[in-house]
Structure formats: C-alpha cells, structure tokens
Amino acid sequence: MAKVKILDKELSIVSQFMAEIRDVNIQKDSMRFRRNLERVGEIFAYEISKTMAFEKKEVQTSLGLSNEFVFKHQPVIATILRAGLPLHQGLLNYFDAAQNGFISAYRKHHKDGSFDIELEYLACPSIEKKTLILSDPMIATGSSIVLAYKALLSKGKPEHVHLVSVIGSTEGLEYAKRNLPNNVTIWMAALDEELTAQSYIVPGLGDAGDLAFGEKE
C-alpha cells in the first residue's frame, strides 16, 4: 500500500498558496493561478529532495576546494496533460537536470453519466531503477493517476515513485492507496472530504486545466 504525505497538516507558505489557488476571484487571473500551482510544485520538489540519495562531490571554488553533496541520480518527472503542466514546471524548476515524461489522458463520458479514463499518448524515457515523480493537480476518483502509473511501468521498474497532487478527495486517495505498491509515496497539498456523483472534488478548486489555460469547447 502506498504511503501518504499531506502538506497542509502543518501551517506553512503552502497554506497561503492554497488559499489563492481556491479563491474564485484570484482564479480569474490565469497567470497567477498557473504561478501558484508552479510554486506549490517547487515546494513538493524541496520536500521530495529530502528523501533522495546524495553523494559527496569535491567542488572547486575561486579560493580552494569544498566538499559538497549532490544528487546521486536525477529523477524522471512526468505529468498528465494538460492540467499538470504548471505543477510539472514547478518540479522542473528545482530538478532542472531531470528527464521528462508526458501522458495524455481524458474522461470518455457515456450517455448514462458514467465515464472511463482513456490514455492517448505516452512519451517518457526509461524509468528503470530511477526515482519517478508523477504529477496531476487533482486526484478525484484516483483512477487516472493509477492508470498513468501503470502505463509508465512499460518504461521500466522504478526504484521509488512520488505521486504529486495539489488537492485530492478522500475517496480518490483511498483508491490510489489500495491500488499502488509500497514503493509509492502520494503527496498532496490538501485533502477534501467530498466527491460528487460527477466526480468533482468539493470544495476543490474547479477545473484546473480550464483555469490555467482557458475553457475547452
């Protein structure tokens, strides 16, 4: 079963960012909305970096030598398009030497109101024995993040996987925990209790993709 870490259990700058991300008036500024998602991604990167392996490296300064610690291996960062792009950029701002992967997924709706998650596209380097960070701003039912994780396994067996989301529902989190192995850590900035019959998180924040990039037809 996957492990879980939720950032807003302790007050921090994340609390300020989350207040702005959820605020219906601040959301009208799509550039600020994207930047707030990006800043939360940067905080996730910092927290995840504490779990990674480091090695000592001798660095030449202008006055001598200094023994410093650097990443032993760079992670692979992947995201679910399109809503995940700002969060992905925040992670990439800190893991700036990482390789990147991209997944296209969407909800295929049926006449009875139900839907399936469909994957259309996957581009990713090998993740064999690497640290994989997979981001999606919302974990509603949990099915899309689990499906994306399983699809990425076609690129190798990672040493550890970090799933990063800004907001998740309790139902979606439980689904993900049940369907992911113990070498997976799920990171969330906030966890909301309610998931509607249409699979929208309440209070949530709305449609992250539309708020960041404009409404779809």
Rank of each mutant, 00 (worst) to 15 (best):
S104N: 11
H73C: 07
G204V: 00
G101K: 04
P125F: 02
K28C: 01
G206T: 03
I103M: 02
H109G: 08
A212F: 03
A2K: 11
F69P: 08
I80F: 00
S15H: 12
I26A: 11
M1W: 08
S135G: 09
D23N: 14
A2S: 15
G204Y: 06
R34G: 03
Y106A: 00
P75S: 04
D112G: 12
A19E: 14
V76M: 06
K5Q: 14
I13H: 09
G90F: 04
Y46W: 08
A45K: 03
D210I: 00
N25M: 08
L65Q: 14
G41H: 02
I48A: 04
R32Q: 10
I133Y: 09
S49N: 02
V70E: 12
G64E: 09
G209L: 03
Q60M: 13
G90I: 00
L152P: 13
R32L: 12
K150A: 04
L132Y: 13
F213I: 02
L205I: 04
D116N: 12
L205F: 01
E128W: 06
A45Y: 06
E68T: 14
K108N: 14
V76T: 10
I77Y: 07
P137R: 01
P181C: 05
L153E: 11
A148P: 01
P75N: 10
K155V: 01
P75V: 00
M31D: 07
V59R: 08
R82H: 06
